[in-house]
């Protein structure tokens, strides 16, 4: 799947992205940190929602646990950042395994609703925990070094995308896609569906938690509302689906583009930005419901008829 050309293109893209802090302004680097983090979140969501076919609305729980694990370890126990991240990942992956076992039995909308419930419950629990600063939140030690945060976010995205690229061509990924395509048939072929789903959920949780931990340290402040933000999960879904769920690069490219569009809109017309952004999403869903990746693959052959066909198939 990953041929030589794609690998070279990816390497060049990574090198270009890595050089941004050398010449980019503070604003650009800060935007970059957010965009890279968002792309990682979309990519992690892709593992469950794209490859395995389980649309999770609980990934914001893992983000929040990653953020809180890092913050608590650093502020309450004086641990270094790296240990904090590990604590966040430990919390998020245990949560994914514990919660995943029962709720991964549910399919489609039922799974989505259950994961949404977990997010609400976890926000409630944390806002009553004294060690987590209750509903006031936690203030992390200040280290304003945007360039390092940028490179760290880029490294995480590269690692996460590398894992997804490996999964896409491996036995593990084949099992996940088989589950998405027909879970009963997959089990009948010998795929241990429960194990595979939980493994994908745990892997997604790990990446999401690291992104949450990095963001907590960078923004130096977290509270339950911002750490367990279900609209963040909605953004993961939108970016992944816009780019191409179940593909290796779709979610990354998709979230870069959407982040950029949002940034431009917010700078030009701050008040109506959210509204216009919503319009962009709706138009994208109507004209290219299978995402950018499918557009890039199919449209060169059929041209504008690609959009007509999509609209027809959608019955609009």
């Amino acid at each position: 799947m990953m041929n030589k050309k794609t690998s070279i293109a990816a390497a060049i893209a990574v090198a270009l992205l890595a050089s941004v802090p050398l010449f980019g302004s503070d604003v650009v680097v800060q935007f970059g940190i957010d965009a890279l983090s968002m792309a990682t979140l979309a990519q992690a969501w892709n593992l469950m929602g794209g490859f395995t076919g389980y649309p999770s609305f609980g990934n914001s729980v893992f983000y929040g646990l990653g953020a809180y694990g890092t913050a608590i370890a650093m502020t309450k126990f004086g641990m270094p950042f790296g240990v904090g991240l590990a604590a966040g990942v430990a919390a998020a992956t245990s949560c994914a395994a514990l919660v995943g076992l029962p709720i991964l039995r549910l399919r489609g909308p039922y799974f989505a609703i259950a994961t949404l419930g977990v997010n609400g419950a976890m926000a409630e629990i944390v806002s009553n925990l004294r060690i987590a600063g209750a509903d006031v939140g936690l203030v992390l030690p200040l280290t304003r070094n945007d360039a390092s945060f940028y490179e760290l976010s880029l490294a995480l995205l590269v690692f996460c995308t590398g894992c997804v690229a490996w999964a896409a061509t491996s036995r593990f990924g084949m099992g996940l896609v088989a589950i998405r395509e027909d879970e009963a048939a997959a089990s009948t072929m010998g795929v241990n569906a429960t194990l595979y789903k939980v493994a994908a959920f745990v892997l997604a949780a790990a990446f999401t938690a690291v992104a949450g931990g990095i963001h907590a340290y960078w923004s130096t402040f977290i509270d339950p509302a911002s750490a367990f933000d279900s609209t963040l999960n909605v953004r993961m879904v939108i970016m992944c689906v816009f780019g191409g769920p179940g593909t290796v690069f779709g979610p990354v490219v998709g979230s870069f583009i959407l982040s950029a569009i949002y940034e431009v809109l917010a700078a030009q017309i701050s008040t109506a930005a959210a509204l216009l952004f919503g319009v962009v999403i709706v138009v994208a869903v109507i004209f290219m419901p299978k995402g950018l990746a499918d557009l890039v693959q199919q449209a060169p052959g059929v041209g504008w008829r690609y959009f007509v066909r999509n609209i027809r198939e959608n019955g609009i």
């Binding site: 395509e181 027909d182 048939a185 997959a186």
Partner: peptide, 14 residues
Amino acid sequence: KPFPGMTALENVTV
């Protein structure tokens, strides 16, 4: 119960 989005080869490879 085929895996609809997979090719015939991928189906059987599973």
